[in-house]
């Protein structure tokens, strides 16, 4: 009796898993087909011939440029976010001053706000300082909007660092900057890598800011780029599929190699709200 129960449970869990991944497998399969095969064949059939040329076509057709923009914007924003968040968390948790709780509260309020409520004034601000259609507006926006969640993830780790480390460093005549950059920061590597992963997913997939602040094709990132690109290739399903798979690949690779970090990062972002 109990065994039958377990079999049913496994089937249920497997069905959910199938529902979760099948659309992506289907996407991958049609990215290797041509329209004729997609429209006449079964959606579940393997490609008769693997048309990798779909990938070459879209890469050379403009996706390559968007890809590099996504990489450098995501990368620079991650570095700035993690550095500034680590510095702020250090000051809040390790240093003694009156307003640290208030400042921390301010960052935590930043977790709750809907970005759409600030996007019109932000647009106007960038317009006034000539940062509209400039990729740096995206970099600093990503940095600002990811700071609260990054600080929140770092916070717990910083609280648990033993005081003795700082005492020993100071007695040895170490300056505070040297202590932070040479001792504290390296010690937080495990938690920093979690924040890097979570920032990477957010930045790589972000759409609204780029869609609003960037109008030139040369500065667009993948999310907005593929949106335009698909407009051009609207009828070629294979090309659309290849475009979507390319845009997903870096995150998928990160997930395959660091799945535990991804899981940890996503669950810690849950406390947000």
């Amino acid at each position: 009796m109990q065994r039958i129960g377990y079999v049913i449970l496994y089937i249920a869990l497997a069905l959910v898993a199938l529902f979760q991944v099948f659309p992506i497998i289907w996407l991958f399969m049609f990215s290797l087909k041509d329209n004729q095969e997609i429209f006449s064949g079964s959606p579940f059939a393997l490609p008769a011939e693997f048309r990798w040329e779909n990938y070459v076509t879209v890469w050379e057709g403009g996706i390559g440029g968007y890809f590099w923009n996504s990489i450098w914007i995501t990368g620079v924003a991650i570095i700035l976010t993690v550095l500034f968040a680590s510095m702020a968390t250090f000051a809040i948790t390790r240093m003694q001053w009156k307003w640290n709780k208030l400042v921390l509260g301010l960052f935590m309020v930043g977790l709750m706000i809907p970005i759409h409520s600030s996007i019109i004034p932000l647009f106007n601000m960038f317009l006034n300082v000539n940062l509209i259609d400039n990729p740096w507006s995206i970099v600093i926006t990503y940095t600002a909007y990811n700071l609260p969640i990054t600080i929140m993830i770092l916070l717990g780790f910083y609280y648990t660092l033993p005081r003795e480390i700082e005492e020993a460093a100071i007695i040895d005549g170490c300056s505070i900057h040297r202590m932070f950059f040479r001792i504290i920061l390296p010690m937080t590597t495990p938690i920093m890598s979690t924040t890097v992963i979570i920032n990477m997913i957010y930045n790589w997939n972000e759409f609204v800011f780029v869609n609003t602040f960037i109008s030139s094709d040369e500065y667009k990132t993948l999310t907005v780029g593929i949106q335009n690109f698909i407009g051009q290739y609207m009828t070629d399903w294979g090309a659309i599929g290849a475009t979507l798979i390319i845009s997903f690949l870096p995150i998928l690779l990160a997930f395959l190699f660091f799945s535990n970090k991804v899981v940890e990062g996503i669950s810690s972002s849950a406390v947000k709200g």
């Binding site: 979760q20 845009s247 991804v262």
Partner: peptide
């Protein structure tokens, strides 16, 4: 982990 995969895609994708 399998259940989590769609969460990694961008909204556009």
């Amino acid at each position: 982990k399998i259940y989590l995969v769609p969460m990694l895609l961008s909204s556009v994708a």
